[in-house]
Simulated scan of single mutants.
Amino acid sequence: RAPFFAAAAMAAANLALGWWVLPETVTETTRRRFSLARANPLGALGAVSRLPGLRRPLAVFLILGIAMNVYPSVWAYYGQARFGWGEGMVGASLALYGVAFAAGQVALVRPAIARFGEHRAVVLGIWVDIVTLTGYGLVTSGLAALLITPVTALGGVVTPALQAILSRAAPADAQGELQGVLASLNAIAMIVSPLVMTGAFSAFTGPGAPVFAPGAPFLLAALMMVAAMLLHVAGPRDARAEPT
């Protein structure tokens, strides 16, 4: 039970940090009256999706969430089935992924968006995700999988860039509602992805599998990222999302 106590302590620290450090962003000019119809995930999603220009990037955000949740969904099973990793190696590989992703968020997101603009940063990040997910789907060496892991950090620019595009498209009095909708979509992705990805893993590793392919969920996620790419580039481009 120790990990749960550790998580609770971190949540308490996060609460204190948010209470004392984060400034209030809602002003009297952007505050609106409470509406029960919009104070639920479905009502908020309906209200936000009706705003001009938000449906397509919201769909991209959802597809992205389902695809990228392949990591927590099947990584432990994948490492054991493909490479024969034990619990310690699975934990170490997940830690490597976490460190690489955190480093990418700190060091790469701001320069990448400033250099390429939000639209192109999304495209670049999705391309990186397609390549790395395909790599995980095809590699047979544990060392090769570990070498791919730091490259995944480059794909971390997608979500912040996409959130910036969405935030700019929403009015000032809908920013909190938008963030709630994004959290709801992420929760939906965390429900759907384990069902889909573990199903794909079982289909290609269990008895009667047409071919032994523990990396099948990653190939499926790569295909979903291709769909997200096509959906994103087919949409209208905001000039403010271009590099300055």
Results as ranks from 00 to 15, higher is better:
Arg1Asp: 02
Pro3Cys: 11
Pro3Arg: 08
Phe4Arg: 02
Ala9Glu: 09
Ala11Glu: 00
Ala16Gly: 15
Leu17Gly: 10
Gly18Asp: 12
Val21Ser: 03
Glu24Gly: 05
Thr25Val: 04
Thr27Asn: 01
Glu28Ile: 06
Thr30Ala: 14
Leu42Pro: 00
Gly43Ile: 12
Ala44Glu: 00
Leu51Arg: 09
Gly53Trp: 12
Leu54Glu: 07
Arg55Gly: 13
Leu58Gln: 00
Ala59Ile: 08
Leu62Lys: 07
Gly65Pro: 04
Tyr71Phe: 14
Ala76Tyr: 06
Gln80Phe: 07
Phe83Asp: 01
Ser93Met: 10
Leu94Ser: 07
Ala95Phe: 12
Leu96Phe: 10
Ala100Glu: 08
Gly104Asn: 02
Arg110Gly: 02
Ile113Trp: 00
Ile113Arg: 02
Ala114Cys: 09
Ala114Val: 07
Arg115Ala: 15
Leu124Ser: 07
Gly125Met: 08
Ile126Met: 10
Ile130Phe: 12
Thr132His: 05
Leu133Phe: 15
Gly135His: 05
Leu138Ser: 03
Val139Leu: 10
Ser141Ile: 05
Ser141Ala: 13
Ser141Lys: 06
Ala144Met: 12
Leu146Asn: 09
Ile148Ala: 07
Thr149Ala: 15
Thr149Lys: 05
Val151Ile: 15
Thr152Leu: 14
Val158Thr: 12
Pro160Glu: 08
Leu162Glu: 00
Arg168His: 15
Ala169Lys: 13
Ala169Ser: 14
Ala170Ser: 14
Ala172His: 05
Ala174Met: 13
Ala174Asp: 08
Gln175Pro: 09
Gly176Ile: 05
Glu177Lys: 09
Gln179Met: 14
Val181Gln: 05
Leu185Arg: 01
Asn186Ile: 04
Asn186Asp: 08
Ile188Pro: 06
Met190Glu: 06
Val192Arg: 03
Val192Met: 09
Pro194Asn: 11
Leu195Arg: 01
Ala200Asn: 02
Phe201Cys: 05
Phe201Gly: 03
Pro207Ser: 14
Pro214Val: 03
Ala216Met: 15
Pro217Phe: 08
Ala222Trp: 06
Met224Trp: 11
Met224Asp: 04
Met224Lys: 06
Met224Leu: 15
Ala227Asn: 10
His232Asp: 05
Gly235Trp: 13
Arg240Leu: 13
Thr244Val: 11
